[in-house]
Amino acid sequence: MSSSNFYPKPIPLDGLSPTALNVRAIGDSENPVDVVVVVDGGEYRIVRDLCPHMGAPLSQGKLCTEERKLSCPWHGYEFNLASGELMHNPNDEIYGCMKTLYKSFNPAKTPKYRLRVLPYEVRGGEIHVRRGVSS
């Protein structure tokens, strides 16, 4: 496997907190890439530090380790860290009564927001994050 299939900076396992959203830089100066690493049992869930909705820093969100759920700090969307899927938009309860009021809003057109869970390999006490499609 060519090393270019991996992001340039591996993530040392040392120092990863099992209860926190660990933010790490894995790119280089030309292409900086920050990721959030969540320790999930013997596995790691790694996603870009960038919400697919409007670009919030997910590292400032809220982690629920039991439900493997990450809530975005800007609009509170809740993502499943194992699959990347959007589980819930908590605002639907607040604004449900307004969602038929505007011609220019069509809920059927709301994208299926999804986190890209990045594949990785663990070697020599480090996580090497693979570029490319989600596992």
């Binding site: 909705h53 605002n91 505007y102 220019s104 809003f105 069509n106 809920p107 057109k109 709301t110």
Partner: peptide, 17 residues
Amino acid sequence: NSYLAEGQFLLFKDDYV
């Protein structure tokens, strides 16, 4: 763009658009 997107809810969206 993301505020104008058809699938994004905003208050008073028709006015904004």
